[in-house]
């Protein structure tokens, strides 16, 4: 497998992991290990007074793992910029998963605010990985604004419905000058493998692993699926649609022999 390079950092693993929805930090830690991931997302929350809960960060801090703070919870570009500054301070990294969803029901990314925030954050020195609609034109705009990757959704977040946006992802992958990370909607290892076969640079998976019967085994399955899909892409997929034979008759090209 070719190494993935984002903003000058090399990644051997093309599976990014979200840390939400695990039953325990212990389980999360094991899943991270089993997945082989080198990039995990982390959210921020306001502290509660007298809160003595386990500090999740100590479970994932590891020199081999890039922390990717997200801006989950913000509703517009202004809030995203504030959240980004807080994240940079808290986690000591300028990497950022930019996600802006004003709609609390489907958590769909707001394209105009995401583009606006990307422009500002890039100028402020952030490495911006925006979660976005599977909109090829938007992705080009984000790229031009300086996004380090684009992260189009495969399906609405948490739905596990796979690559509903397949046709658009294909165009995005074809056109993109930055890595394309498929985020949201990947519900099974086969979905991740398909995204990689299409030529996606990486997949970001959370729910499908965190809520699996055995999250650690599922993390391993996704690791294998992402590797298999990427290797298949690099190997060049074989004939799928129809099998071509050299045609004996040549009604269209016989004029060339005249």
């Amino acid at each position: 497998m070719e190494k993935l390079v984002i903003a000058g950092r090399e990644f051997s693993s093309r599976l990014f992991l979200g840390t939400g929805k695990f039953n325990s930090n212990e389980l999360m830690t094991q899943a991270i290990k089993a997945s082989g991931t080198e990039m995990v997302t982390v959210a921020m929350k306001r502290i509660e007074l007298g809160d003595k809960e386990d500090d999740m960060l100590q479970h994932i801090i590891n020199p081999g793992i890039q922390l990717l703070p997200n801006t989950s919870g913000v509703r517009n570009a202004e809030e995203a910029v504030f959240a980004a500054q807080m994240a940079r301070e808290a986690f000591g990294t300028n990497w950022l998963k930019l996600e802006i969803h004003p709609d609390p029901r489907y958590l769909l990314p707001d394209s105009t605010e995401t583009l606006k925030a990307t422009e500002q954050l890039v100028k402020m020195g952030f490495v911006v990985l925006p979660y976005c609609q599977a909109d090829p034109t938007l992705c080009k705009h984000l790229e031009e604004a300086g996004a380090a990757t684009v992260m189009p959704l495969g399906a609405p977040i948490g739905t596990n419905r796979g690559l509903q946006t397949r046709d658009f992802l294909r165009i995005i992958i074809e056109q993109a000058g930055v890595p394309v990370v498929v985020d949201a909607g990947i519900g099974a290892p086969s979905h991740a493998a398909e995204a990689m076969e299409l030529g996606a640079s990486a997949c970001l998976v959370n729910t499908a692993i965190a809520v699996a019967g055995d999250p650690v085994a599922m993390a391993r399955a996704f690791r294998q699926a992402v590797e298999a899909g990427r290797t298949a892409y690099e190997a060049g997929l074989g004939v799928q649609a129809e099998s071509f034979v050299a045609e004996a008759s040549s009604p269209l090209t016989s004029f060339l022999d005249e």
């Binding site: 999360m28 306001r46 500090d55 504030f82 301070e89 808290a90 729910t207």
Partner: peptide, 30 residues
């Protein structure tokens, strides 16, 4: 008051009556 205060400035940052402080920490999330 909605402005991030870098850690390096915490020691000198004098608190006054009624200010709005937000403190965040890491949490699990995708």
């Amino acid at each position: 008051n909605n402005r991030m205060v870098p850690r390096s400035q915490w020691a000198d940052y004098v608190l006054t009556e009624g200010v709005h402080i937000v403190i965040i920490k890491a949490a699990c999330g995708g």
